[in-house]
Write a protein that binds this DNA or RNA. Structure first.
Length: 576
RNA sequence: CGGAAUGUAGCGCAGCUUGGUAGCGCACCGUGUUCGGGACGCGGGGGGCGCAGGUUCAAAUCCUGUCAUUCCGACCA
């Protein structure tokens, strides 16, 4: 490709709406352009990158035995009613009506459609197990799109769905996909960590996410992991052992005392001169519009996804100050936030964290403003009868597997795998006929990779102050040839010769034939992120060129042949 | 949805307080000098100021409404 004809416009300045580095660089280097909030044009350079990631994904999925198909982007409401998700998916599902006022939606994921395909096309146990996948655009009307391609509303995803007759085959395919994913991300030049996670709106029991580890804001997930063993989990799912703590308040007697204006745990602990670990914290949530009281040792935080799972709700949020007072009033109490507790709330769902189980002689709110009960014990609250893990882990907690300290970092979720079981096949009546002649629902799994997010994550992982540094396997082009002065006959001839020679060898090469100063061409080359650069300058009179890798290796004076051979060798090695 | 802010040329911005008919940098076109890390000079082209009303002799500037975008909080590949 000649640079003079390449469709690209590089910018000197960062776009004003970009926060994270991948967004800034992809816009500045001319890869993407925003059409509307969370929706981007993939310009020619970007499309080359995306196609490469798609192809790597496709090759590995095919190698793993999956079959590619393509499902519609627009889906009918009825299908979503069959699975029961039309009512629960929420505003993220982009709903629309056709001219006949029939309900439709833009596909945010394709469990419903694939299940309908399976129930039509898979009739016998003899056809199973099978894994079907597609690579396609998805649309999710995110509350707040941001970070460019990392959280767009429209994005490209590879989604695969497996169908089996039993849990064992599902588990095999799950492992098979986990292995395929590791190969895919490795080939894309990305280090990923496979972590346990909550399965969220997609459903199912067991799930793992593939995270690109980063220490920037672009990583929207907290990941807890252990260096001593293989434990790693998303914060929404991580469990831990706690360091020893004082859990006995040491109060002489049980009594209600005045604790004026202690609206926060800080203030209460300071007022009573006790550690937070002897205070029982009560937080009122609204789960699917019903009140839920969460109890936890006051030095710990509630993990809302865990709480949501414990309640079995689809949506959860902390109650507002007004709601707290109103709900208290309904139960005959006059209490504001900061003074509430489980006392007397017999018809409210109470979810106690396991940390509560060990507490003795503690401090707790009793639904009276400006008062707390000290010296309390769990037997005072017969309505606390079950204990769950709803606690958010913290760095410094210990690994649940080996007991060593856990570490925390941030990650970008580029892929995930779920064991769905019969969550969709059962309600949608997707069954096959088993050996015994009986109809049984498919045991399903599903497996996603954010293709466009993976591209952005690659930029987050591979860049410097000058621009992007694409891994060879997903770079839009492998090499750029820069003749310093295009009016120099020898330089331009040599550049042309190298250009043709590399092309013949199957290398993807850009010849920067623009009549620009060398500095401009170098800046653009660095910004766009070509893995290799050959500069043909003055030293060509001695038969020498400069060879540079985007990683920073420079050879000032090298023969053009050596540069070409090296590029051919390295690229072929990576692509092999 | 709650809180904050912004919409002026492809991009980044100034001009609005104190209304007088739009400007700067980058990018683009022409031209000359320059030529190994985003050169400089000269000469050009492009917008009527998100949209719709209103006030006024006159509105990018004031008023009303509306739409969009961005940031901060609750969601997820």
């Amino acid at each position: 490709m000649k640079m003079s004809k390449l469709f690209v416009q590089t910018l000197r300045e960062n776009p004003s709406d970009a926060e994270v580095v991948s967004h800034k660089l992809l816009v500045r280097a001319g890869f993407i352009r925003k059409l509307t909030s969370g929706v981007y044009n993939y310009l020619p350079l970007m499309w080359r990158v995306l196609k490469k990631i798609e192809n790597i994904t496709r090759e590995e999925m095919d190698r793993a035995g999956a079959q590619e198909l393509l499902m519609p982007f627009v889906q009918p409401q009825e299908l979503w009613e069959e699975s029961g998700r039309w009512g629960v998916y929420g505003a993220e599902l982009m709903r629309l009506k056709d001219r006949h006022e029939r309900g439709m939606c833009l596909g945010p994921t394709h469990e419903e459609v694939i299940t309908s395909i399976a129930r039509d096309g898979l009739k016998s146990y003899k056809q199973l197990p099978v894994n079907l996948y597609q690579i396609q655009s998805k649309f999710r009307d995110e509350i707040r799109p941001r970070f460019g391609l990392l959280r767009g509303r429209e994005f490209i995803m590879k989604d695969a769905y497996s169908f089996a007759t039993n849990e064992e085959d599902l588990m095999k395919e799950y492992q098979n996909m986990a292995q395929a994913y590791k190969r895919i991300f490795k080939r894309c030049g990305l280090d990923t960590k496979m972590v346990q996670s909550d399965s969220g709106a997609i459903g199912g029991k067991i799930s793992h996410e593939f995270m690109v580890i980063t220490d920037t804001d672009a990583g929207e997930n907290d990941v807890f992991y252990c260096d001593s063993c293989d434990y790693a989990a998303n914060s929404n799912h991580a469990i831990s052992k706690l360091p020893a703590a004082v859990v006995d308040g040491g109060f002489n007697k049980k009594e209600v005392i005045d604790t004026p204006n202690t609206h926060s745990i800080d203030e209460l602990a300071a007022f009573l001169k006790v550690p937070e670990t002897v205070i029982l914290k009560s937080i009122l949530y609204i789960a699917d519009s019903k009140p839920v009281l969460a109890l936890i040792r006051a030095d710990k935080q509630v993990e809302e996804t865990k709480l949501m799972n414990a309640v079995g709700a689809n949506e959860i949020r902390i109650a507002t100050a007004g709601e707290i007072e109103e709900i208290m009033r309904e139960h005959g109490f006059d209490a504001v936030a900061g003074f509430i507790g489980p006392k007397g709330l017999n018809d409210i769902n109470i979810i106690a964290d396991k940390t509560v189980y060990d507490m003795k002689n503690f401090v707790v709110g009793i639904n009276q403003t400006d008062k707390h009960l000290v010296g309390a014990s769990l037997s005072d609250f017969p309505n606390i009868d079950k204990y769950y893990d709803i606690r958010l882990c913290e760095a410094g907690d210990f690994c649940p597997q080996c007991g060593k300290p856990l570490k925390v970092t941030r990650g970008i979720e580029v892929g995930n795998i779920f064991q769905l079981g019969t969550k969709y096949s059962e309600p949608m009546n997707a069954v096959y006929t088993d050996v015994d002649g009986k109809n049984k629902p498919f045991i399903m799994g599903c497996y996603g990779i954010g293709i466009s997010r993976t591209a952005a994550a690659a930029v987050e992982a591979h860049h410097d102050e000058h621009g992007i540094a694409w891994p060879v396997a997903i770079a839009p082009y492998h090499v750029v040839i820069v003749p310093v002065n295009i009016n120099d006959e020898l330089q331009i001839q040599t550049a042309n010769r190298l250009y043709e020679e590399l092309q013949r060898a199957g290398i993807e090469v850009v010849l920067d034939d623009r009549d620009e100063r060398a500095g401009v061409k170098f800046k653009d080359a660095d910004l766009i992120g070509f893995p290799y650069r050959i500069t043909v300058g003055k030293t060509i009179t001695e038969g020498l060129v400069e060879f540079k890798t985007r990683q920073g290796e420079v050879m000032d004076k090298i023969s053009p042949q050596d540069a070409v051979y090296r590029i051919i060798a390295e690229v072929n090695k990576i692509l092999a």
